[in-house]
Design a protein around this nucleic acid. Structure first.
Lengths: 194, 194, 194, 194
DNA sequence: AATGAATGAGGGTTCATTCAT
DNA sequence: GATGAATGAACCCTCATTCAT
């Protein structure tokens, strides 16, 4: 276990620092120092700073997927309730996943190519989940697809979803806005509704 | 005018580079070289890299305000049409204002405190504008404020607005998604509608 | 045999890499990876990078000696023909002995003391061989020792020999110049001749 | 002059260290420390370690050219005496130009591409000089071109010249062998002679 | 005999900033 | 107003070597 100990220690510390200071302002030196490991050890376990960051982000994305799956696969929920819980859970998890936010930056600010595939995977995965929920909603006669274009609807929905990440967490307004989350959901679901 | 010439040249070049490569990956060296000015000159006109970046962002925010004001103050438009045009214009301007996107990063990733006040100013300004449009919509019997809480509605609205910035520009999907912009607006306005 | 297997594998790989990339640009990591051995194994069999390099060079020098001995001990050859074949064979062998070239560097650029004795051994050995050929040439009335100083002549001769290594191999001009090798030999032998 | 002072100081120190320890074993840190300059200053004046080394070598090559030109253009010398002095001067200058030796390494060991053009320039320049001397020798009925191929002769000659660099300096045997230099020249010139 | 995790000194390079001119 | 030389801290990364297993 000693091996994994070192690697985990590094990931844990890196996760904390990347989340707090961002990719650029976190140095390999600092990670090593706080993890009480030699700098060379970081490079023994990870090919470089980018790979270490990637692995940290990957962990959080997996965690997100795991938690959302529970909701999507819960057969006792109706589509509108399910989508509401999906959105809320999504926000909660992301709120505690500081490094994922760094990923956002990767996407548009710095164009960190090395993170792209992770993001795309998650996007596609979420699209599938939401599709299943909306199809369920149509079955249950709760939602209606305007002009029959499911793909467009999904794109728009994901667009909003991801858009919400910014004001909620990134500006640190999660606590301010989360009480009004119901209002937002009501608007969105009413907008989607029959 | 020689003075302004130099300062403007620096700002122009800095704007282009910050927008293209981001705050971190743009160096003062590069700005100086491309502007054909001595590095010392940058520090004569600006206290440092952060201040230079701040001024660049300020310029773009002012431009955004100017263009949006035209729409808000256009008395020939009804509230629903006005809000639609507001959103579209907002996207258009931001699409060409690369540095503003950098600001987003500032807000949440790197915690660039030195940009905060600019962002807050803009947020408050937009809140005022949207408030006036929605009040006009209520007057015209187009919108309805659920449970009478205007402040909450505005916060949610701005939240969505800003959220949209990411998928639209920052992920480079502006061209992909802009055709479906109408769908999104229909959903939002229907959600807000009476 | 398992022991020798590992050691030989390491030497073989090290020889290839040192020859291709040079002493400095070849890392123990790379040798270990390509040899599919643990890095620790290299240090089990060799005291360090220098010793490994030394052993690689030693192998090539022994090969050179073996091949040159065949010519020197060939009783059917006259001295001038023998010296000609000696020089040509020397070039041929060295052309395929990449690590020996590294040795040259060792000698003068980086002052790799740890290689010195190998080089000196070879120099002395070659001196002996050439001496026997020249003595044979004097016996056969083909060569003439100017002012009777054999030692000096040998030093000069070896000096030229080794000097030729550079333009021939090290600058990659072996193929360009080897056709003119006859001209060079004619000049040298005529210079040495009676 | 303050500007050139710094740059010259760096070059001087770099020249000494590169010559003494070689390209790899000389660190930018050490150069900076001994030159009593900030490490950043090295990078202000030179793009990197390679460029600094290149400039150091270029200086020595220019010095070599200057000194050899004096001999080549001396109208009072006959061809055989001229070529003898050319070779001797060449050795003397190179003996004190430690960094040029590093260049040799560049040529064949590490394939320092960034030095190639310097070397090629020098090779071509020397070929021209020697050609003029040999033509003069033919005019004066001192030399004879075997089978009329001047180009081959020049290649062979330069090959020997450059070859001599190794045993003379690089192995530190300059002092040992320089007394016998006359013998070598006699052999070569006799070999070339009519 | 062999492994591979861990080390830590050292390397080249970048860059925001300062300051004498 | 403007310059550009000079700084030095910080950064990412490499690598020969050690050692417990």
């Amino acid at each position: 276990m000693a091996v994994d100990d070192t690697k985990n220690k590094i990931i844990t510390v890196a996760s904390r620092l990347f989340g707090r200071y961002g990719f650029y302002k976190t140095s390999m030196d600092e990670i090593a120092k706080i993890a009480r490991k030699a700098k060379g050890s970081l490079y023994y376990h990870f090919a470089g700073k980018e790979e270490l960051f990637t692995e940290v982000v990957a962990k959080e994305i997996n965690n997100l997927k795991t938690q959302l799956s529970v909701i999507v696969n819960d057969n006792t929920l109706k589509a509108d309730e399910k989508i509401k819980r999906y959105l809320i859970k999504r926000m909660e998890v992301l709120d505690s996943a500081a490094n994922y936010h760094e990923t956002l930056k990767a996407d548009f600010f710095e164009h960190f190519d090395f993170i792209d595939s992770l993001r795309n995977d998650l996007d596609n995965w979420e699209k599938e989940q939401l599709k299943s929920i909306i199809l369920q909603g149509i079955d249950e006669d709760i939602f209606r697809i305007q002009n029959g274009n499911m793909e467009v609807l999904l794109d728009v929905f994901i667009m909003v979803l991801k858009g919400l990440e910014i004001p909620f967490f990134l500006q640190g307004k999660y606590d301010d806005l989360s009480p009004h989350f119901d209002d937002l959901l009501r608007i969105l679901i009413k907008g989607l509704g029959k």
